[in-house]
Design a protein around this nucleic acid. Structure first.
Lengths: 212, 212
DNA sequence: AACCGATTCAAACGGCAGTTTAGAGTGATG
DNA sequence: CATCACTCTAAACTGCCGTTTGAATCGGTT
């Protein structure tokens, strides 16, 4: 049977397997051999279909980006003419969903979180294609909540929001040791998103009112 | 000249070099060869003075902990009978200082941040010796600010504070690309600590007032 | 001087990872 | 049927890493 006849061509299976491995272990720790094993392909498959491990990684990153944009469009459950508060809530919720969704390719959030901590050459791609647009969107949301605030204050507020969300991903190993009972199911994600949104709104309003 | 006569014995030089390498590259990426090169020692030195790479890592972790406790004691510039707000401010400031201080062994904060993201076997040590005491201290601070709140609410507030602080360490590569101008000098750290403290106080007060 | 324990050293070992290579299979094309 | 491009495969190559080994060095002790 030729590869094209199979339900999934080898190239696609490699992208799937690589996405899972890269998201779980990072670029360096993920091994080409394990990726090929998961994809049911030969060790040389990566070098044949993609030039090398790094090019495969870039392909995974851009693919995850396209998928994430499809699955979590910017609007994301917002009605027409939403308030800034609603936009912030939707933004935070979407970030949580991207990071904790265990669906098929849920790598986008995990890859992004990992690149932040352990950058590779693909970081420039990620920043330009994914992070910068989201950063600008969150900046505009916060700007609407803090009219008249300077750029520096906006950045501080944005970092506070992002930091809270990413922490639940970064620190999950520690959390598992500190609070063994805690598990992140679907409703917990909604609870966390609600908390971060309210907490951040209070902080932002304080910044807007206090005059900095 | 015998090793004991040198200003620094080989064992100590190894600990210094290993601390820097581990903090910068993490346990797996740091190489024994580079550590020994920095320490001016033979490749076999690690296996002679410590049993293996992992034992060296544990020694570095516990050493960094002792140093951090000495340099940043829990009180840290607080007067007698401080308010909860002052305690929170001191706590946040101490975390920032530990992470950004470039002094001799400033690894404690960096190692901790790294272990959170990429745990090793030493994570249990770190959690018990370093993270859990700090976690409990922050819990008590937040408890004083949110009297009557449940454990779950306290944990959410604690996570929000920690997440904001750690974000400035985790995301520094991305920040460098998004805001090339931003640099973290001594006064910037004070500014960041002040922001996170105020932002968090507003969020915590909102949680305490809103009734959750 | 002879010996000893501690330390240092160069060299090698074994394993794993990314990549390359040479060849075999396969469907389409003439 | 011969040819060709594409795909896949087993095996080897190269380099790095942690560790081990056996000898050399050196101060102190008898």
């Amino acid at each position: 049977m030729r590869a094209d006849d199979r339900p999934e061509a080898t190239r696609d299976r490699l992208l799937d397997a690589a996405g899972a491995e890269f998201a779980e272990h990072g670029f360096r720790h993920a091994t080409v051999r394990e990726i090929c094993r998961r994809a049911g392909a030969n060790v040389a498959a990566v070098n044949y279909h993609f030039r090398d491990k790094e090019s495969l990684y870039e392909a995974v990153v851009t693919r995850a980006h396209r998928y994430a944009v499809d699955k979590f469009p910017p609007g994301l459950g917002l009605g027409a003419d939403p308030t800034p508060e609603q936009r912030l809530g939707a933004f935070v919720r979407a970030m949580f969903l991207r990071m904790f969704d265990e669906g098929r390719p849920a790598w986008q959030g995990k890859l992004m979180a990992r690149e932040m901590f352990e950058p590779t050459r693909a970081l420039a791609i990620l920043v330009n294609d994914i992070i910068k647009p989201q950063h600008l969107e969150l900046m505009s949301i916060v700007r609407a909540l803090m009219p008249g605030a300077g750029e520096a204050a906006l950045r501080l507020a944005v970092n506070s929001v992002i930091g809270q969300v990413l922490h639940y991903h970064h620190a999950r190993a520690v959390t598992a040791l500190l609070q063994p009972a805690a598990q992140y199911g679907a409703e917990d994600i909604e609870r966390l998103a609600g908390h971060v949104t309210r907490f951040s709104l209070a902080g932002i309003r304080d910044m807007a009112g206090g005059g900095g």
